[in-house]
Simulated assay, not measured.
Amino acid sequence: MTGPDLQRWRLVLGEPGGVVGDGQPPTDENAARDAALEWLYGRDEQLVLRGVRQAGSRSGGDGPSTLATVDWLDAVTRLFPRETVDRLQRDAVERYGLHEVVTDPTNLERLEPNPALLRSVLRTRHLMDPQTLRLARRIVEAVVRQLMDQLATEVRTVFAGTRSRRASRFRVARDFDARRTIRNNLGRYRPEDRRLLIETPYFFSRTRRHLDHWQVVLLVDQSGSMADSVIHSAVTAACLWGLPGLRTHLVVFDTDIVDLTADVDDPVELLMKVQLSGGTDIARAVAYAGQLIEQPRRAIVALITDFYEGSTQDALVRSVRDLVEQGTKVLGLAALDSHARPAYDRAVAQRLADVGVRVGALTPGELAAFVAEQVGQ
C-alpha cells in the first residue's frame, strides 16, 4: 500500500487510524483535513458506544474546543472538493444540529447553496434576524432555480403531448424518429466511408393534451419531517401555474391552514413564508380543500403528508370519502421529492386507500405526468 493510500485510510479511520501508516507523519495538508473531520465527526456518540472514545473525552489537536464554525467552514472549503464540502455541510446541520452554520451571517456568506442547506434554512428561519434572512434568501433562490430548471423540462414534456405512431409533417428535433429514418434510408448506406445518407428524415406526431378548466389542489403537510416535500411542492406548483386551462392551488397545513396560492408563481417568496412545525390536523386541511373545489369531477386533490394524523382518523376518513364520492380524484402522496423515499403511517394510508384514495410515493415529475394524464382524458 502506497503512502497516499495510507494517508487516505488515516482520514477515513480518524484518530484510531493513527496506528496505520509507514512511520511517516501526515503532511500538513492531511493533518488539517484530519482536524476538520475530527471537529465534525468527533462529536458522534457512536464513538463512545463502540468504545472508540471514552465518554466526555474530546481530542484531536485543532479539534472541537478550538475551531470555530466559521473557521471550520473556511477550512473544509479550502481542503476538500465541492461534493465533499456539500456532504460535510449537510452532516453538520442535519446529523449534528449545528444550526449556526446557517443562522450566522458570516457563515452564510461562505456557504455554497445546496438542498440540505435549504432545508435547514426553512427549519431555522424563525431564529434569523432580518440581515441573516436576506443572506439566507440567496440559498433559497439558488436551490429553487436549480429545481425549477430540472422540473420545468419534465412538465413541458408531459404537457406537450404523447408521441403517436403516426408520422408528422412538422420537423421538430425532439420528435425525430431515428429508427424509422435509419430503416427507410438503409439503401443509401456507403460502406466505404461508413456513412448513411439521409434523404428523408421522419418525425413522430404528437397527440395534444386538451386542458379545459381543471383544478389541482396541492395540500402539503408542513410538519417538521416534511421539509423535502414542502420544497418540491412549491416548485411543482410554480411549474404547473399558468398552464392553459389548469388552475393550481397550494395550501400548507399543520394544526392551522395557510393558503399560499397567491404566491405560487414565486416559489422563493412562498418558501420564505413556510413555517415547519410539529402538529398535524389533516382532516381539517382536507375539509378546506373541499371548499375550494368548483367542479368536483374536474378536480384533483394531492394530499402530500406522512399520514400521521394529530386529530381523529375517523374525521379524516370521512372528509376524504366525501371528496371521492363527489367525483374528485384524490391522491395520497407519502413523498414528493427527487427520490420519492416514503416514510408514513401505513395503517392510516390503508384506511384512505380503502375509501378510494390513490396512495403512493411520487417524484414531482411523476405527479405532473399524472395530472397531465387526467386532464387530457
Rank of each mutant, 00 (worst) to 15 (best):
Val324Ala: 10
His126Trp: 09
Val220Thr: 06
Val216Thr: 12
Asp221Ile: 03
Val101Trp: 00
Leu367Gln: 01
Arg95Met: 08
Val52Ser: 13
Glu309Met: 11
Gly290Thr: 10
Val144Cys: 04
Asp254Glu: 06
Leu336Lys: 02
Pro267Met: 01
Val371Pro: 02
Ala353Cys: 05
Leu367Tyr: 04
Leu49Ile: 12
Ala92Gln: 05
Gln150Asn: 14
Gln146Asn: 13
Ala36Gly: 01
Leu250Lys: 00
Leu122Asn: 03
Gly14Arg: 02
His213Tyr: 09
Leu316Cys: 10
Gln377Thr: 11
Pro342Val: 01
Asp314Lys: 13
Met1Leu: 11
Ala55Gly: 08
Pro16Thr: 07
Ala152Trp: 08
Phe307Ala: 14
Phe203Asp: 07
Gly21Leu: 10
Glu366Tyr: 07
Ser319Ile: 04
Trp39Thr: 06
Asp129Asn: 14
Asn30Lys: 08
Thr132Tyr: 04
Leu67Val: 13
Asp263Met: 11
Arg119Ile: 05
Arg171Phe: 08
Gly332Gln: 01
Gly278Glu: 05
Ile300Gln: 01
Thr200Met: 09
Ser229Phe: 02
Val230Pro: 05
Ser277Ile: 00
Val20Arg: 05
Ala340Ser: 06
Asp62Gly: 09
Arg341Leu: 13
Gly56Phe: 04
Gln350Cys: 07
Thr200Pro: 04
Ser223Leu: 03
Gln275Cys: 10
Tyr202Glu: 11
Met128Trp: 09
Arg125Gln: 14
Arg138Thr: 15
Gln291Cys: 08
Thr69Asn: 03
Met272Leu: 14
Trp214Thr: 02
Tyr344Arg: 02
Gln89Arg: 05
Ala92Lys: 03
Ala335Ser: 15
Asp91Gln: 06
Pro342Asn: 05
Ser233Leu: 05
Cys239Met: 09
Ser277Pro: 00
Val101Cys: 08
Arg351Lys: 12
Lys329Thr: 15
Val348Arg: 00
Val252Glu: 01
Arg179His: 15
Thr200Ser: 12
Leu271Lys: 10
Leu303Pro: 00
Asp149Gly: 11
Val251Pro: 00
Leu336Trp: 00
Asp129Thr: 10
Ser225His: 06
Val12Gly: 03
Arg284Asn: 09
Leu333Trp: 02
Ala302Met: 04
Val70Asn: 13
Pro16Phe: 00
Asp175Asn: 13
Arg8Pro: 06
Arg82Leu: 09
Ala173Lys: 11
Leu331His: 12
Gln291Ala: 10
Glu366Gln: 09
Val359Ala: 12
Pro113Ala: 05
Asp228Leu: 12
Gln295His: 14
Asp177Glu: 15
Thr27Pro: 01
Gly356Thr: 04
Gly224Trp: 12
Asp322Thr: 13
Thr84Arg: 10
Phe176Leu: 14
Asp28Leu: 12
Val12Lys: 05
Leu240Ala: 02
Leu127Ala: 12
Asp354Ala: 15
Met128Arg: 15
Gln326Glu: 15
Thr66Pro: 10
Ile282Asn: 01
Val252Ile: 15
Glu29Ile: 08
Glu294Ser: 11
Ser57Pro: 00
Leu271Thr: 00
Trp39Gln: 01
Pro16Ser: 09
Thr236Ser: 10
Thr312Asn: 14
Ala142His: 07
Val216Ala: 14
Val330Pro: 03
Gln146Arg: 13
Glu309Leu: 11
Glu269Cys: 03
Glu45Met: 07
Leu240Ile: 10
Ala353Asn: 08
Asp62Cys: 09
Asp221Asn: 06
Val144Gly: 04
Ile198Met: 07
Asn184Gly: 11
Pro201Ile: 02
Ala349Ile: 13
